[in-house]
Design a protein around this nucleic acid. Structure first.
Lengths: 193, 193
DNA sequence: CCTCCACAATGACAAATGATAATAAATGGG
DNA sequence: CCCATTTATTATCATTTGTCATTGTGGAGG
């Protein structure tokens, strides 16, 4: 039973006891190990994933082999390639597991079914979609600024990632090299003492 | 009569003749002059804007006074601060007019009414929302790359902006200085001959 | 026709960031 | 607990990008 899935949804919309009981039945849960792929570049994305425990990342590998991180996702967050899922086109992204844990997956058709059966979930989905859009906009504005400000904005917005993610993953999210990030952190540490 | 508004929507969904006639009545059209603001930072955004003619930009002014462009919008495109519009919170953005023209505006309540009366428009709205989301994702990946690649990706994706926008506006969109952009263009011109 | 102003290009220099390499430290899996 | 692997730091040097100053250019408006 995923208590977290229900409580996460219930944070934004009201659910009856019966709805709370039925929702998990639309999902499948799966344990995931480190380095496991939930989606590979070139595949069509078939699921929306809810992270119950652990940590995942969505990234592309560019022509030079560099990995650019689009998103991280931890307990209580969702992750998928929405474009591929909705249009049925092959994904440009990989989604893999950084920390082992448990994810709940739901297919496109089951999701539609769930929306029809429990409209509150559709409402919840609209709310978080809108938040995700606003988050992407903020991110674009960060990326138009120098590396130090990007990093500080990131830490301010997501302080828990600071301790949880390897630094080179953070660097790949910020669009800088791990060496640059190391220098920035060193500079910050110096000026603060 | 905005033929462009109808034809733009009809590109993605089917509309009856009667629907085509009714849609514009939910909007107000207004001529706009250069430098006019459709939205100012600190205001709550009240409208979604459809550009019938002309060109607008959405941007923030950061703490150093630098203007960071989030979006450009031309004939057949939409522009608004969705977050402010939906949540009723003050906007961090300005939307102003780069080229004089005509825009059609629709309030949140009229938009909801329109969705209820003509469901095809709601479907259209979902389709373009999804496209806008995918476009933001692509943009984030561009911004994680060096300036030259950002510029080339921009030109490849939106060749018509290349001739239409002042270069310093493009630079503010790419997150680089106008001087850097000028250098990049110079380098490209040299290598191509 | 002239003037003002927005826009673009360029050079010189400073600062930030990337690339490479070497080393140290931490961590995960048997 | 140990070892292989991953991760982080640091130094050096090259490249990119930003800053500042100057000049040129074209167009809008008096």
């Amino acid at each position: 039973m995923s208590q977290l899935l229900i409580s996460t949804i219930a944070q934004h919309v009201s659910l009856t006891a019966e709805e709370q009981q039925r929702i998990p039945s639309f999902f499948e849960s799966l344990p995931v190990r480190r380095h496991q792929f939930l989606l590979r570049e070139g595949e069509v994305c078939r699921y929306e994933f809810f992270i119950e425990k652990g940590c995942c990342r969505q990234y592309e590998t560019d022509s030079t082999g560099k990995e650019n991180v689009l998103q991280f996702s931890i307990e209580g967050w969702w992750i998928t390639d929405l474009d591929s899922l909705l249009t049925g086109t092959p994904s440009r992204f990989n989604i893999d597991v950084l920390e082992p844990g448990v994810v709940w997956q739901i297919s496109k058709s089951q999701l539609e079914l769930l929306f029809n059966e429990i409209p509150a979930v559709e409402r919840y989905y609209r709310i978080i979609s809108q938040r995700a859009y606003a988050a992407l906009q903020r991110r674009i504005l960060w990326l138009q600024k120098p590396a130090l400000e990007r990093y500080q904005a990131f830490v301010a917005a997501y302080p828990f990632f600071e301790t949880r993610l390897p630094q080179h993953q953070v660097a790949a999210y910020l669009g800088i090299t791990r060496e640059s990030l190391s220098r920035l952190r060193n500079k910050i540490a110096k000026t603060s003492r």
